[in-house]
């Protein structure tokens, strides 16, 4: 495996975007970074800057306004990148799927690589999803 690929697997910098969730998944994403779960031991850093992110973590269903923001974040993020949709809403719209201002999961807006189930998803699941995303990142590398 190439050195860069190996480094990539150990250094996922995440960009978290809330597309319209109820907050449950968002606080669980933050909780995944805090002492009990400490995702940083896997090199996860919440970087907050799309230009430097590797993994886009999205929560919540998409609505027209957040979809535009999400789309632009996705476009700003340089390759290789993977998208993790956290929670039932991000996957399908969840309980909000039939709400008037919601048009479904985030995969209607950007391609999603990993779906993390749950309402809200647990931090363990989120970390699991990130690892799965890394595996996809490796596949994209052809490694």
């Amino acid at each position: 495996m190439r050195l860069v690929t190996r480094a990539r697997l150990k250094s996922p910098w995440i960009l978290h975007f809330d597309c319209g969730s109820c907050n449950g998944c968002d606080i669980e994403i933050l909780a995944a970074l805090t002492p009990k779960f400490d995702a940083e031991r896997l090199g996860v850093v919440n970087i907050g800057d799309p230009k430097q992110a590797d993994v886009i973590v999205v929560t919540g269903p998409a609505n027209p306004r957040s979809a535009r923001a999400l789309r632009s974040l996705y476009e700003q993020t340089p390759d290789p990148k993977v998208v993790v949709a956290v929670g039932a809403c991000a996957a399908t719209g969840g309980v909000f799927r039939n709400c008037e201002n919601v048009f479904g999961g985030v995969d209607k807006v950007i391609p999603v690589d990993v779906y993390v189930p749950g309402c809200a998803a647990r931090p363990e699941q989120i970390i699991d999803g990130l690892l799965l995303a890394l595996r996809k990142l490796k596949e994209k590398d052809g490694g």
């Binding site: 027209p64 535009r68 789309r71 201002n101 807006v109 391609p111």
Partner: peptide, 27 residues
């Protein structure tokens, strides 16, 4: 304030849709 006046179509759907690459899942 709450709603965007842009129709849903203004959000471009990724080209993956027709080609059948990912995510084919729900579309």
């Amino acid at each position: 304030m709450l709603k965007s006046d842009a129709p849903v179509l203004a959000v471009s759907i990724p080209s993956a849709l027709e080609g059948g690459t990912q995510p084919t899942g729900r579309k």
